[in-house]
């Protein structure tokens, strides 16, 4: 489904702030894979997701989604294939627009936007049903401005928007990190349900190792712009936090690495 081949990315090349964030990353996701991504600050997790989303072009390497080479496509064109939820709850929704308008915008992702109605009656019913699934009471607030919602509600809405048209790839960039534990658990629950329901191919960054182990069928760990650990199947099922820490220490070649690095 997703095929990343040898991608490299250096920021601020030739300046004192030069930082090579991705150093030849290779990653192939099969249809329906749910991969959790962990790693310390600056390991390149978010950079990897941004590279796939096309926020900026990569320096080297290729990215293809569902067999289509998207390496040279701009961000808004890749959106056809990708649903995204960001770490910042403010980033994924239009605050000055209504809940139903946000959903309607997401429903038209990848389509040509013309002079057809921005939202139809039938859609409203569909959205009401979808929102019920989140169990946050949003189904009765279709015409509320999104700016009035809490961070958790906004993340849940963004998640719904990302999955609304069954993307070929769902990218979750620490989407529960800015939420309080209770809300984070709720949003993570909704994530699991949505991913399972539509059998979505998913990449989820998390700073919580327990979440990384509990969710998905595969786990990768990044360090210094590379993928250093890649476990899946039975091996991943049996993984413990202690083992994961040991793996991290081995990969980074440092005994200073403690859980703080991973928990970012």
């Amino acid at each position: 489904m997703l095929e990343i081949k040898n991608i490299w990315k250096t920021f601020n090349a030739g300046t004192v702030n030069e930082k090579t964030a991705l150093r030849g990353v290779d990653l192939t996701l099969d249809d329906g894979d749910f991969v959790t991504v962990i790693g310390g600050n600056g390991a390149g997790k978010s950079t990897l997701l941004n590279a796939v989303s096309g926020v900026w072009p990569v320096d080297r390497g290729t990215i293809s989604i569902g067999g289509v080479d998207v390496t040279k496509l701009p961000e808004h064109k890749r959106a056809k294939y990708i649903g995204r939820v960001f770490q910042d709850p403010m980033m994924g929704t239009a605050a000055t627009m209504q809940i139903e308008e946000n959903l309607a915008l997401a429903a038209r992702r990848g389509q040509r936007r013309g002079l057809r109605p921005g939202i139809t009656k039938a859609e409203r019913e569909e959205y009401r049903e979808q929102l019920k699934m989140l169990d946050l009471g949003l189904e009765d607030r279709l015409t509320s401005k999104v700016g009035l919602l809490s961070g958790g509600q906004r993340q849940a809405l963004t998640l719904l928007m990302a999955a609304l048209r069954k993307p070929q790839l769902l990218l979750l960039d620490e989407h529960t990190a800015a939420l309080d534990p209770k809300t984070a658990a709720k949003v993570l629950d909704a994530t699991e349900r949505i991913v399972q329901k539509d059998h979505l191919t998913t990449l989820m960054i998390t700073h919580n190792m327990r979440d990384a182990i509990a969710h998905g069928n595969r786990l990768i760990m990044m360090y210094d712009g590379r993928i250093v650990v890649d476990v899946s199947g039975e091996e991943k099922e049996k993984l413990t936090v202690e083992q994961l820490l040991a793996m991290f220490n081995q990969a980074s070649g440092s005994d200073e690495a403690d859980d703080k690095l991973l928990l970012g």
Partner: peptide, 24 residues
């Protein structure tokens, strides 16, 4: 109230969101 008009409003409201929803 049309698709294009809504895309325009989304652009003014949140460019990141607009691009993530496939709006140029």
């Amino acid at each position: 109230g049309r698709e294009l008009g809504a895309a325009l409003r989304a652009t003014g409201s949140n460019q990141n969101m607009a691009r993530a929803q496939g709006i140029n």
